[in-house]
Amino acid sequence: MSSRDSILKAVKNNKPELLPLPEIDLDVFNEDINLLETFIKSVELVGGRAKVLNSISDLDNEIKALYPNAKQIVSSVKESDFGTVSISKDTDPHSLETIDLAIIQGEFGVAENGAVWISENDFSIRVLPFITNDLILVISKDAICLHLHDAYKLISKRERTFGLFVAGPSKTADIEQCLVIGAHGAVSLTVMVV
C-alpha cells in the first residue's frame, strides 16, 4: 500500500460524525426598511455608485454621461444600444483585454451589502466582469432582497451555472494599508436601478 493510500484510508476511517445544520429562525433578520434606499447606501459603502433611472429608456443616456470616453463597450442588456463590441460563447476571452466598459444584466440585488447577483446566462464570457475597466450592472428596483439569507434562497432554485455576487469595484489592500482599486477586476462599478 502506498503512502497516499494509507493516508486516505486513515482519513476515511477517522471521519467525524456528520452533524445536522443548525435551525435558524430567519424571521429575526427581517427589518421594515426601504430596500432601495438601503441597497443604494450599501453600494456606495463598498465603493460603487448606484443610479435610479425613471425608465429603461434612460439607460443609454445615463451611460453616455457617466462614461463619455468609453470606446470598447460590451453590452448584454438588450435594452441598451450602447455596445460597440459583439461577443459570443466562441469569443476568445483574450480578445477582451481592451474592453473599456461592460454592461451586464443583474438578476437581483441585496440591500444588506450592496451585492448584485449575475450569472453566465446574462453574459456569455465568464471573464467579462473582471477584465473590463468599468462595469455597469442593471437591476430592477423590484428585484432587491433584504439580506443574503433571501439571496441564497433565490439562487438555490437556479440551474447550476456559473454565477457570482459582485459588490463594489475590485479592491485589495496590503499590510501597510495601501488600498489599490481595480487590482483584480473593474476599477469602477455602477449599478443602474430601473
Rank of each mutant, 00 (worst) to 15 (best):
S86Y: 00
L59W: 07
F82Y: 10
S86A: 03
I73D: 09
S80P: 07
A70F: 12
N69W: 03
H94V: 08
D58N: 05
A70Q: 14
N69P: 11
K78F: 14
V74E: 10
K78L: 11
T91A: 01
S75H: 10
T84I: 00
L59H: 10
K64H: 09
L96G: 15
V85D: 04
S80L: 05
I87K: 05
E62L: 11
D60I: 06
F82Q: 07
H94P: 08
P93F: 01
S95P: 03
K71V: 14
L59T: 11
G83E: 03
E79M: 14
I87D: 09
Y67I: 11
D58C: 02
D90V: 05
I63L: 12
S57I: 01
Y67E: 05
L59V: 14
D81E: 10
P93M: 09
V74D: 02
V74G: 06
V85G: 05
D90C: 02
D90F: 02
F82C: 09
T98A: 06
D81W: 03
V74Y: 02
I87Q: 01
K71I: 13
Y67F: 15
K71R: 15
D81R: 08
Q72A: 09
P68Y: 00
I63V: 15
I63D: 04
K64T: 10
D81K: 10
K89W: 04
E62D: 04
N61C: 05
L66I: 14
I56E: 00
A70R: 02
D60W: 06
S76M: 15
V74H: 01
K89E: 15
S80A: 10
S80T: 01
T84R: 04
S88Q: 07
D60V: 11
H94A: 12
D81V: 06
I87M: 04
P93Y: 08
G83R: 06
H94S: 08
N61H: 08
S88H: 04
E62F: 05
E79F: 11
D90W: 01
S75T: 15
S88A: 06
P68L: 02
I56N: 02
S95C: 07
N61E: 13
